[in-house]
Write a protein that binds this DNA or RNA. Structure first.
Length: 269
DNA sequence: AGATATTCCTGGAGGC
DNA sequence: TGCCTCCAGGAATATC
């Protein structure tokens, strides 16, 4: 399941193939993912030159010299394949460069999305307008303090709120809370300032380590089978229900907001 | 304000 | 082996 590190790794891998290239051909192999593809997607992209790639929250951005930005979301099963030997049932969007390289957006469960947005209007694009700061670099304990003060929801729920932090998903919310030794059930407004400082450090740390691991695992950001963004992940608590924690406690699973939360009952307080 | 439910979708896991 | 059920996930939206 792609989270921010996988999106970042994907964007870096895509950039190596398509950045600076002219788009020679676009093939929409179905009409929609979660939403319909922009009907004029092929027309607006074909012939355009890719001027750069980026990421906002868990969205990947492909900028073109026509003032458009292709915005993609990987949902839970989406990934790009580089120079696939052949196209399969779940390769929904194909982009071919002027060099003849191919990248295909593959998404079996079709939770992903593809939109084309005027680059100048990206900050005002509905999905981006209310987003909080990026969790990699812009986050401070003071910001968390300001946002959490007076809030009675759990700190885990707050971390999942994209208006407070953009792009932090279930896995890395769990991992960051573990790293900062915070009980995910704790009322957000009651987390100590010291813990918030630790959290503001833990969040970019766990994400940064995952991105670094992805880059090294995939070597050059492309796996041997041409897939971008999926790599072996080693989590401290996520998916490790029943496993021992280093403190002598046991990793426990609970459900918060219909999402699994994994944490150590003993050392997260 | 905040919790909960629903929708989208299907591969994979587990049960029998 | 083969059916069946259920779960996973992010975001938008609705309802309490």
């Amino acid at each position: 399941m792609p989270e921010l590190p996988e999106v970042e790794t994907t964007v870096r891998g895509l950039a190596k193939v398509i950045d600076g290239r002219r788009i020679a051909r676009v093939e929409m192999r179905r009409e929609d993912l979660r939403r319909a593809f922009p009907p004029d997607l092929g027309q607006r992209l074909t012939g355009a030159r890719v001027t750069g790639l980026g990421r906002r929250a868990k969205y990947g951005l492909i900028h073109t010299d026509r003032g458009d930005t292709l915005v993609f979301h990987l949902g839970m099963s989406g990934h790009w394949r580089v120079d696939p030997a052949e196209l399969g049932q779940h390769d929904h969007l194909l982009i071919v460069t002027d060099e003849g390289r191919q990248v295909a957006l593959n998404d079996a469960r079709r939770f992903g999305s593809v939109d084309l947005v005027c680059s100048d209007e990206l900050p005002q694009w509905p999905a981006f307008r209310a987003l909080g700061p990026e969790p990699t670099g812009e986050l401070t304990g003071a910001w968390l303090k300001q946002k959490f003060t007076g809030r009675k929801a759990s700190v885990k729920a707050m971390l999942m709120d994209q208006r407070i932090i953009a792009g932090l998903g279930n896995i890395y919310a769990c991992e960051a809370l573990y790293r900062a030794r915070i009980d995910p059930r704790k009322v957000a407004g009651k987390v100590s300032r010291a813990k918030l400082e630790a959290l503001a450090e833990a969040i970019p740390a766990v994400l940064g380590e995952a991105i670094a691991a992805g880059g090294s695992t995939l070597r050059d950001f492309v796996s041997p089978d041409g897939e971008l963004g999926y790599f072996a992940k080693e989590f401290a608590v996520y998916g490790r229900e029943g496993h021992p924690c280093g403190c002598g406690g046991t990793v426990t699973r609970i459900v918060q907001g219909a999402r699994s939360t994994f944490f150590c009952l003993k050392c997260q307080t």
